[in-house]
Simulated assay, not measured.
Amino acid sequence: MERLRKHIEEIVSVSDHEFEHIKTFFTLKRVRKHQFLIHEGDEVKYEFLVLSGIFKVFYVDEHGKEYILQFAKENWWMSDYPAFFKAQKADMFVECIEAGEVLVSTLESREKMSSDIHKMDQFFRVKLTNGYVALQQRIRSLLTSNPQQRYEEFAMLYPDLMQRIPKKLISEYLGVSRETLSRLYSK
């Protein structure tokens, strides 16, 4: 739980008493490689903070093609957020690609935590804003960058992921073929 406190205190400071209360809203879950946290069609009750490991958030179209929306590593939050916030069924999957641990929390817990400790409202607002900014940057990159530029941007932003994620998944995330990624990787 100290990792949680450190993560929170990157944005807001909390007292020992406040943190003791905050901890009650989270449950630790160990996750095996290839284990799913969310399947398409699930009721999405949880969001997850990655403590260790790597996860992917993706959807599958009607032709069976997989589209990776997000990788999540240590200190990143993930869920099927449209379903999480709107109490809808999932249309995405969350799968573990490197075994690890996550902290699990509900929307009700988030709201109660924010109500009880107003600093947490600020914490979640900053996290949500940062996630939204990252998502818009990713969309813009997909729309306006060529494969070489997308690859270089990914390698610059996430050099550690280049070593931890299979190249097949990186190519799917970047929207390029495995062969194109191999050519870019060899440059």
Rank of each mutant, 00 (worst) to 15 (best):
2 E>A: 13
2 E>H: 09
3 R>I: 14
4 L>V: 11
7 H>I: 02
8 I>F: 10
9 E>Y: 00
10 E>G: 14
14 V>S: 03
16 D>F: 04
16 D>W: 01
17 H>K: 11
18 E>K: 10
19 F>K: 03
21 H>I: 10
21 H>L: 14
22 I>G: 02
23 K>G: 14
29 K>L: 13
31 V>K: 00
33 K>W: 13
36 F>V: 09
36 F>P: 11
38 I>L: 10
38 I>S: 06
39 H>F: 13
40 E>L: 03
41 G>R: 03
42 D>I: 07
43 E>D: 13
46 Y>H: 15
46 Y>W: 12
49 L>T: 12
50 V>T: 11
50 V>G: 00
52 S>I: 01
53 G>W: 00
54 I>C: 15
54 I>Y: 03
56 K>R: 09
56 K>Y: 04
60 V>F: 01
63 H>D: 11
63 H>M: 05
64 G>P: 10
67 Y>S: 12
68 I>S: 00
68 I>P: 03
72 A>Q: 00
72 A>K: 03
73 K>V: 05
77 W>P: 04
77 W>A: 05
79 S>G: 04
80 D>R: 00
80 D>T: 00
83 A>G: 02
84 F>G: 07
85 F>W: 09
87 A>R: 10
89 K>N: 14
94 V>M: 04
94 V>K: 02
97 I>L: 04
99 A>H: 13
100 G>H: 01
101 E>I: 07
107 L>E: 05
109 S>W: 05
111 E>R: 10
112 K>H: 09
112 K>F: 13
114 S>F: 05
119 K>I: 14
120 M>N: 04
122 Q>A: 14
123 F>D: 10
126 V>M: 07
126 V>A: 04
128 L>K: 08
133 V>L: 12
133 V>I: 15
133 V>N: 06
135 L>C: 11
136 Q>S: 09
138 R>L: 03
141 S>R: 08
144 T>P: 08
144 T>R: 00
144 T>H: 01
144 T>D: 03
147 P>C: 06
147 P>F: 02
150 R>S: 07
151 Y>C: 03
151 Y>K: 03
152 E>Q: 14
155 A>N: 00
158 Y>F: 15
158 Y>H: 11
161 L>K: 01
164 R>K: 14
167 K>Y: 02
168 K>A: 06
170 I>K: 06
174 L>C: 07
175 G>T: 03
176 V>L: 14
177 S>C: 08
179 E>N: 10
182 S>V: 08
185 Y>F: 15
186 S>D: 06
